[in-house]
Amino acid sequence: MKIVVLLKMVPDVVEELEIAPDGKSLDTTYLRMILNDSDNHALEEALLLKERHGGKVCLLAPDAPEVDDALFAALAKGADRAVKIAGIDAAEGTRAVVARIVQALSTADLLPADLILTGAQAIDDLDGLVAPLLAQTLRWSHLSVVNQVRFDASTGVTTVTKEFPGGLRAEFEIKLPAVLGIQSAEKPPRYVPVAKVRAAMKSLQIDSTTVPIAAGMPALEIQSMAKPSAAGHAEMLEGLPEAVAGKLCDVLAAHGLL
């Protein structure tokens, strides 16, 4: 199986995020980038498929701070090749990024492939999700929020499982090539010892490809950004149990939880 995994770096929310003086973007002074969590699961699912059926796992990632670390870690885990797309600006918008990915897939010689896996969502997705848009552009089959991919080598049939509410799962048969948005891999992303990552850094390299920006791909313009006010201490609700319960219900309703 030839699998391409799309990886994306997103702001690390362990660090306090700050809004830039323009009021519409993140202050990058202390901003750190980390591999988007569900992309990490997409990588794991790809590695599992490779272990079961052989083949190659290639990584494609927009260039971003700290992306090399993530790519080397992925190579150390067992991916075969890593390619960065140079010069992408996060503010370009998902559609422009997808258009660039499509070009990069061919300039970096990643096609044909059987599967393209990526995270079902990234925490900075503002104007669309990569997996469906990419599938649409490539005219490949597609499903997202996937948590299992199975390939039956004897019949050549690929089945994909999606989780629905209440723990119900739906199993689909899907024709390849396909783009899948992975929610979670069958098992948690593996650990890779630092020594292995260091060895990968010494012996392997990351390719880079440049593709022109796609014209006429409007991005949404952010008017303003704000941080929800953080509470240092809980707001205390007082009264007799019934009264408190009533107030709590209001809180739950206001949060759309009833």
Binding site: P188, R190, Y191, V194
Partner: peptide, 22 residues
């Protein structure tokens, strides 16, 4: 052992990853 362990216990994995990153 850690190199060949099929699955590092998640609590340990989390701590090691945190240590590297943070």
């Amino acid at each position: 052992m850690l190199l060949s362990l099929p699955e590092v216990p998640s609590e340990l994995q989390r701590a090691l990853e945190n240590m590297l990153r943070y």
